[in-house]
Design a protein around this nucleic acid. Structure first.
Length: 617
RNA sequence: CGGGGCGUGGCGCAGCCUGGUAGCGCACCUGAAUGGGGUUCAGGAGGCCGAGCGUUCGAAUCGCUCCGCCCCGACCA
């Protein structure tokens, strides 16, 4: 019922596609006054001209969002993302919203569930209400990894304040602490990209439909995931605008006038932006409807040069991943079934998370002449022949924040590599009286002064936690946030001229003289960074297995899990069978897997090398 | 889309059967003590009980309709 005019709002059949909760409400609550364009909204008012003053701000004519979300020319307003008007309607597509993690309270947890965990822990050590055994783990309201890894992940991302859910389904809000982590890896990758000769540029958010549809395989691959703007300025657009799912199409079109001669090549560009891909199933950072990333786009005169560029891109990712995020990766080539729509081939890096599942950490695509040809880009080569340039594109996204969480975290929360940690060292002062406080503060001031003038000039990101909370509370607070080192400085330490240095990753404690601490911290952070990488590499290697029969592969996947290197004949049918029957996919054909003749794990046909099978995110 | 369940302060829940204008824990604010692994005590602020319509003197509670969410299945990847 329209709350303004009282007309009944009727349900519209076929409203099973639900891009957002409120848009779906709009769809199913259209107000069918005959002959009157009617825009009905979540407020359950029918917003026709008779009561325009009540229109929500964001629905007034001229407002972009009103245009994007509502179609006045249809009884059921349909600006439906992922909706291909040419496709037959498919009923029965379910609403697959990722379940929200049970929201949680921060801080000293005593929510019901936290208490349940606490009770469980007490009973686990056999002394309900008795003294806690420190090594038995902390009282915490984070789900244990071994209990339910996805829930652990959600708990950590929310409680460490990396991100939050948004009012729009599938989208996320990146909070300051999470954004700082993103900025760190973004900065590092940007340095690599520039060092390899690329320039940052910007292209529009909107892609005219005709451009997106020029490359046939590309359209087909992306169409189901594209969000369309159908209205703007209060009226229907003659040509729909896609909200970019990626920018190949618009870039290829835009640069065609820039490239006339081989002298204009190579053209090496990079964009930092957001893209939208309508996902049915989303997870914070790992797969969101809108995400932030970098996409490099290059054009070259020769195939060889373009192929070298694909390697350059992958190399940037490999280095950022290993050197900055301490995540070891396996480089390889995607199978044809997994490659980018419109590419000739796709290279990738794959990483192992602590639940032994794989995560695609970055991809680099050889576009060949596909997009150039579709967009009509031609240049005159040395030999005075007009040719289409060869293109590449490569992308690295906020998903890597999730990868960092899942590659290093433990039951106490995040474990961050120092390079990306927004806070590398947290100092927790301990005192009772004002005199003690003053003494501790003095020691901390001197330490901070010394840190500011480290010989290497390398600033250490230090935070002193003076909040009026108990020390134990602060320990847990910063452990949850993955801070690599904690310094405890109390009266006893000031007297002894030392600080207690606690490593987050193994919680080891060590007394270090205050006068050496500042000089040593950078090296300790460096060692910590290396230790995390080594730890992750050990974990991955010890969970990577060679298997030769399908039975072994299935047993392995269902058993302890991990990565499985197995022979494959190259046939897509075998690939699909494994996926259908085990849920695993071929993550890549690793570059470092040696030539080795064998029999395909699935069909027994001849295989030239082993490929990497795993269940993946 | 089929079957089941659930919507009550920020979060987790009780109250509903047997209508009388809302309560608990955590989080939040204030004060004091405490402070070397999630510290106590005291005081305080915060809720049109998912929405609409009905029944009634009176609805969180009863009835109808709608909306949203979760689980299982099917579908998709």
């Amino acid at each position: 019922m329209c709350r303004l005019c009282g007309r009944r709002l009727e349900s519209t059949p076929g409203s099973d596609r639900r891009p957002t909760s409120w848009a779906s409400e709009a769809i199913s609550r259209s107000c069918p006054r005959p002959g009157t364009p009617c825009r009905t909204l979540r407020s359950s008012a029918c917003l026709d001209n008779s009561h325009p003053a009540d229109e929500p701000e964001f629905l007034r004519p001229g407002c972009f969002w009103s245009a994007a979300q509502v179609r006045p020319d249809r009884p059921g307003p349909l600006a439906v993302a992922g909706y291909d008007p040419r496709a037959p309607h498919r009923p029965g597509v379910p609403d697959r919203r990722e379940p929200r993690a049970p929201a949680v309270t921060l801080g000293p947890g005593s929510t019901a569930s936290a208490q349940a965990v606490r009770l469980r822990e007490f009973s686990a050590v056999g002394s309900p209400g008795g003294a806690r055994v420190p090594s038995e783990g902390f009282v915490t309201s984070i789900t244990h990894q071994s209990e339910n890894f996805p829930e652990w992940y959600n708990d950590v991302v929310l409680k460490a304040e990396l991100a939050d859910y948004s009012p729009v389904r599938g989208c996320m809000i990146i909070r300051p602490y999470g954004y700082a982590i993103w900025e760190s890896m973004q900065g590092e990758l940007d340095r690599h990209i520039k060092a390899t000769g690329h320039s940052n540029v910007y292209f529009p958010l909107f892609v005219p439909r005709s451009l997106l549809e020029k490359e046939a395989e590309h359209v087909e691959g992306f169409n189901p995931q594209v969000a369309w703007v159908t209205h703007a300025g209060g009226k229907a657009l003659d040509e729909w605008l896609a909200i970019r799912p990626t920018s190949e199409a618009i870039i290829a079109d835009s640069v065609k006038d820039w490239i006339q001669s081989y002298r204009d090549l190579p053209l090496l560009m990079n964009i930092w932006n957001n893209v939208v891909r309508w996902e049915l199933r989303t997870r914070l950072f790992l797969r969101t409807t809108e995400f932030l990333w970098q996409e490099a786009h290059t054009f070259h005169a020769t195939r060889e040069e373009a192929e070298a560029e694909v390697a350059t891109g992958l190399d940037c990712y490999d280095r950022v991943s290993e050197e900055w995020l301490a995540i070891p990766v396996i480089k390889g080539r995607k199978t044809d079934g997994e490659k980018f729509p419109g590419a000739e081939f796709t290279w990738c890096i794959e990483a192992m998370m602590r639940d032994k599942k794989a995560l695609q950490a970055g991809t680099s695509h050889m576009l060949g002449q596909n997009f150039a040809r579709a967009a009509g880009i031609e240049f005159l080569d040395r030999d005075n022949v007009r040719k289409n340039p060869y293109g590449t594109s490569w992308g690295f996204s906020t998903r890597m924040v999730g990868a960092t969480v899942m590659a290093h975290g433990d039951d106490s929360g995040l474990v961050l590599p120092p390079n990306v940690a927004p806070v590398q060292v947290v100092i927790v002062p301990i005192f009772r009286t004002d005199e003690e406080r003053a003494a501790v503060a003095g020691a901390i001031d001197r330490l901070q002064g010394a840190l500011a003038e480290t010989p290497e000039g390398k600033a250490v990101r230090v935070k002193v936690d003076w909040r009026d909370e108990s020390p134990g509370f602060k320990y847990n607070h910063w452990e949850l946030r993955g801070v690599p080192f904690r310094l405890e400085i109390g009266p006893r330490d000031v007297a002894a001229g030392q600080a207690i240095v606690v490593k987050r990753v193994d919680r080891s404690k060590e007394a270090v003289p205050l006068d050496r601490l500042a000089a040593e911290l950078p090296a300790r952070l460096g060692a910590y960074q290396a230790e995390l990488l080594a730890r992750a590499r050990d974990f991955r290697d010890s969970n990577t297995h060679q298997v030769d029969t399908y039975q072994q592969l299935k047993d392995g996947l269902d058993g302890e899990g991990g990565f499985f290197l197995a022979p494959w004949c190259g046939n897509a049918k075998c690939e699909k069978q494994v996926n259908d029957e085990t849920g695993a996919t071929i993550r890549c054909i690793p570059f470092d897997s040696p030539d080795e003749s064998g029999k395909c794990t699935v069909c027994g046909g001849s295989s030239e090398r082993r490929v990497l099978f795993a269940r993946a995110y």
